[in-house]
Amino acid sequence: PDFTLHWNGITIHFKGIDEEQFRHLRELLDRGVSLEELEELAKELIK
């Protein structure tokens, strides 16, 4: 499924991740993950 997340004025689209992965990403963003960390995470998910 696809998810869209609005965070700090940025709209991020996640394609092909499951709800569990999306929930994990939201928790990280709510905790204050940096954009660099988010990019690293995205690379991991894409593999």
Rank of each mutant, 00 (worst) to 15 (best):
G16S: 05
V33R: 02
E36R: 10
G9M: 02
W7Y: 14
E19W: 10
K47D: 15
V33E: 03
L41A: 08
I12T: 03
S34Q: 04
D18K: 11
E20S: 08
N8H: 11
R31D: 09
I12E: 01
L35A: 08
E19C: 10
H24V: 13
L28A: 15
E36T: 08
F14H: 00
E44Y: 02
R26M: 14
Q21W: 07
F14V: 04
L41S: 02
D30C: 01
E20Q: 14
P1N: 12
E44A: 04
R26F: 07
T11K: 08
I12S: 01
F3N: 03
R23G: 09
G16D: 13
E37I: 07
K43G: 07
F3G: 01
V33D: 02
K43V: 07
D18R: 05
R26Y: 11
N8Y: 04
K43E: 15
L38N: 00
H13E: 12
S34E: 04
K15I: 15
G32T: 05
T4Y: 14
L25Q: 00
G32E: 04
T11M: 09
E40C: 03
E40Y: 06
Q21L: 14
I46T: 04
E37R: 09
E36Y: 09
F22V: 08
I46H: 07
L45W: 15
I10V: 13
E44S: 03
D30W: 07
L29K: 03
Q21S: 14
F22H: 04
L41N: 01
E44D: 08
F22G: 11
R31N: 13
L35V: 13
G16A: 04
H6W: 06
L41F: 12
E19G: 09
K47G: 15
G16R: 03
R26A: 11
S34L: 06
E20P: 06
P1T: 12
I17S: 02
S34N: 07
Q21C: 03
E27W: 10
W7R: 05
G32P: 02
I17A: 03
L28K: 05
T11H: 10
K43A: 14
E27C: 15
E19Y: 11
E37T: 09
K15G: 13
R31V: 07
R31A: 13
E19N: 09
R23T: 11
R23E: 13
N8Q: 11
H13G: 07
E37K: 08
R31S: 14
D18C: 02
L25N: 00
F3M: 06
V33H: 08
E37Y: 07
G32R: 01
I10E: 09
I12Y: 07
R26N: 10
E36G: 08
E44L: 05
L5D: 01
D18H: 08
K47I: 15
E36C: 02
G9V: 01
T11C: 05
I17N: 02
I46V: 08
G32D: 03
I17Q: 02
V33P: 06
T4P: 01
L38Y: 01
N8F: 07
R26T: 10
T4Q: 11
F14E: 00
T4K: 10
G9Q: 04
L5H: 02
E19F: 10
K15L: 11
I17H: 02
D18M: 06
D30F: 12
L35I: 15
V33M: 14
I17E: 02
E39N: 07
L41R: 02
R26G: 07
E20N: 12
G16M: 05
L28C: 00
L29S: 03
Q21P: 01
T4E: 09
G9R: 01
G9W: 03
L35S: 04
E19T: 08
L29W: 09
F3V: 02
N8L: 08
I10L: 10
E44T: 03
F3K: 04
D18G: 08
D18T: 15
I12R: 01
F14N: 00
G9L: 01
E27A: 10
E44H: 02
H6V: 14
V33W: 15
I46C: 04
D30Y: 13
W7A: 12
